[in-house]
Amino acid sequence: MNKIKLEYHQEIDNKIVKKELEFEEDLIKVPYSKASLFVSKVKGKSMQPVILDNSLVVADLSQKEFEDEAIFLIHKDENMWIKKASLIEQKEFFVSINPDFSHLVYKKEDCRIIAKVLIYFENEN
């Protein structure tokens, strides 16, 4: 089995620590660009119960096309957000999964897609 190993940085005890995420290549079930993969740590509960606070997501920078029901990292209001793409009344939006954050609905035209999330892992830290 081929493995994918990705570096990322995490703040631990007020220090930035370099870490690695390693996983089996076949865990990703959709086409992707290996050179465009990166890891990001999720902060917040807006995507629970699917993606938990502090989870690690692997995203593909080469995939920036809106795809209904897919999860993306997007840029809006000087922040990076993780949201689900959703067609609502034939219009494209990014929404939260957690009903407690249902007020976080962003029009696609107000956002910039950074990358499509391909897989996610719970993180103990």
Rank of each mutant, 00 (worst) to 15 (best):
M1N: 12
M1V: 11
M1R: 12
N2Y: 12
N2K: 15
K3W: 13
I4Y: 10
K5L: 14
K5S: 15
K5E: 15
E7R: 10
Y8R: 03
Y8N: 06
Y8C: 06
H9K: 14
E11Q: 14
E11A: 13
I12T: 11
D13W: 05
D13A: 13
D13E: 15
K15T: 15
K19F: 05
K19D: 07
L21M: 03
L21P: 08
L21F: 10
L21R: 09
E22D: 03
F23E: 00
F23M: 01
D26V: 00
D26N: 14
D26Y: 08
D26A: 05
I28A: 10
P31W: 01
Y32W: 01
Y32R: 03
Y32K: 04
A35Y: 02
S36P: 02
S36G: 12
L37D: 08
L37T: 12
F38H: 09
V39A: 07
S40N: 09
S40E: 09
K41E: 13
V42T: 05
G44E: 06
G44N: 09
K45G: 05
S46M: 08
S46Y: 07
S46W: 08
M47S: 09
M47D: 07
Q48I: 06
P49E: 05
L52V: 07
D53N: 15
D53W: 00
N54P: 00
N54L: 07
S55E: 05
S55Q: 08
S55W: 04
L56A: 08
V57L: 11
V58Q: 09
V58W: 07
A59S: 15
A59M: 07
L61Q: 12
L61C: 02
L61D: 08
L61R: 15
S62M: 04
S62R: 02
Q63V: 15
E65F: 12
E67K: 15
D68Y: 06
A70T: 06
A70R: 08
A70D: 10
I71H: 04
I71M: 05
F72K: 04
L73G: 04
I74P: 06
H75F: 14
H75D: 12
K76R: 13
D77G: 15
N79I: 01
W81Q: 08
I82W: 06
K83I: 09
K83M: 10
K84C: 04
A85C: 12
A85D: 04
S86A: 15
S86V: 07
E89L: 11
Q90P: 00
E92Y: 02
E92I: 03
F93H: 14
F94A: 06
V95H: 02
I97W: 11
P99Q: 01
F101S: 07
S102F: 02
S102I: 01
H103E: 14
L104E: 11
V105Q: 12
V105A: 05
V105E: 05
K107E: 14
K107I: 01
K108C: 10
K108A: 12
D110F: 01
D110V: 00
C111P: 06
R112Y: 02
I114V: 14
I114G: 00
I114P: 00
I114A: 00
I114L: 03
I114W: 01
A115M: 01
K116Y: 00
K116A: 01
V117R: 00
L118Y: 00
I119Q: 03
I119Y: 02
I119H: 03
Y120V: 00
Y120T: 09
F121W: 02
F121A: 03
N123W: 05
N123V: 00
N123S: 11
E124L: 14
N125V: 13
N125F: 14
